[in-house]
């Protein structure tokens, strides 16, 4: 049962975008390790990240009738 609840909680966090920043950091760590040659490759701050995310999200049809 705790496993189920945990799954539900993770699901809720994921669906709502609550854990988006954690996933971004994880993705960043995974995909930018070899990018030392590139300038300015540090991850965005949480506030910056959300700012960008929201602007992007609403540039298209996102809600239906």
């Amino acid at each position: 049962m705790p496993g189920r609840l945990n799954f539900l909680w993770q699901w809720l966090r994921r669906v709502s975008g609550d854990d988006a920043y954690e996933r971004y950091i994880e993705y960043h760590a995974r995909c930018h390790t070899n990018d030392a040659s590139l300038p300015d490759c540090s991850p965005l701050s949480k506030a910056e990240f959300f700012k960008q995310r929201q602007e992007e999200k609403w540039n298209g049809v996102k809600r239906c009738c």
Partner: peptide, 24 residues
């Protein structure tokens, strides 16, 4: 890592349903 992200199907289902279900 931004808009193209492989996602668990239950989560995609949640997103998709929330987007299609409106007052109609």
């Amino acid at each position: 890592g931004r808009d193209f992200v492989p996602t668990n199907r239950w989560i995609v289902f949640g997103h998709h349903f929330a987007a299609i279900a409106g007052p109609g």
